[in-house]
């Protein structure tokens, strides 16, 4: 059954041009995407293609001047402001982009505890927090760490642990491998794949096409805010991308490991 179903999603920002005229600047146009349980879908696009807006639109976290059109359904139910407010953290979790998403003045342990409170977990103990960290390869010592002492890879694991606390059905990861070395990036993708193998839906927003293809089931390719194609990950691997749409194929073949044959 489809877990998340996004139909013709358009996100625009309303700006004043001069004193009276208002212009809407489209940032995401007509995006249609389905995610099923147990499936990992990668949303790929170059920087500025509107990928991150997708995560904020689904979670209802866009700024007030954003104009959203189209529909987003979760388990067949339309996500409006009050519905999403109820699902955030509990059913849909976000793994954000960077270290700046952790509160600089609170330890990792406290922030995990807060996340547990926010999803309404009663009797969440220190052991539970340690278990959440252990699952992503961090030990107990990290409970006392402040965010500024974490590396990018550690921060990503902490945020994965925070996401896991609510046992969500859908995990949306926004550029989870930005700034990570290939070894750590592969591990993070592995953890996200783990969520999918546990029967959750996973959306990975990424501009690392090779990593996305390696672990996702499907890859949706964005260009300038519009969806170009949604491809099966396996198609990329077959015969140097034969059968892909031209843009996806050009991207795939332009990767260094494919000798830059753009």
């Amino acid at each position: 059954m489809t877990l998340l179903s996004v139909d013709r999603l358009t996100v625009a920002f309303r700006r004043y041009s001069g004193l009276i005229d208002r212009v809407d600047i489209d940032c995401l146009a007509d995006l249609t995407l389905d995610v099923a349980r147990g499936e990992m879908v990668a949303l790929f696009g170059a920087s500025g293609a509107g990928k991150s807006l997708f995560a904020h639109a689904v979670l209802g976290l866009l700024p007030p001047n954003a104009v959203v059109n189209g529909s987003i359904r979760f388990e067949g139910e339309r996500l409006d402001a009050s519905r999403i407010a109820h699902l955030r953290g509990r059913r849909i979790a976000l793994v954000p982009q960077s270290l700046s998403h952790l509160d600089p003045l609170a330890t990792v342990g406290r922030q995990i505890g807060w996340a547990a409170k926010r999803v309404g977990r009663k009797g969440f103990t220190r052991e539970d927090a340690v278990a959440a960290l252990n699952r992503f390869g961090l030990d107990e010592l990290f409970l006392e760490s402040y965010p500024h002492t974490l590396s990018g890879g550690m921060a990503r694991r902490v945020m994965l642990a925070i996401a896991s606390v609510g046992d969500p059905d859908l995990v949306i990861a926004d550029e989870p491998t930005n700034g990570l070395d290939p070894v750590n990036a592969e591990k993070v993708f592995g953890f996200l794949r783990g969520f999918a193998d546990d029967g959750k839906g996973v959306v990975v927003i990424s501009h690392d096409l090779a990593a996305a293809v390696a672990s996702a089931d499907r890859v949706a390719v964005l260009r300038d805010g519009a969806l170009v194609a949604t491809e099966q990950a396996a198609t990329f691997m077959r015969n140097g991308g034969e059968g892909l749409t031209p843009y996806a194929r050009a991207l795939w073949r332009a990767l260094p490991q494919h000798e830059f044959r753009a």
């Binding site: 953290g89 998403h101 807060w114 999803v119």
Partner: peptide, 8 residues
């Protein structure tokens, strides 16, 4: 923003 995404 992240806190709100956690349901705060």
């Amino acid at each position: 923003t992240y806190a709100r995404a956690q349901g705060a």
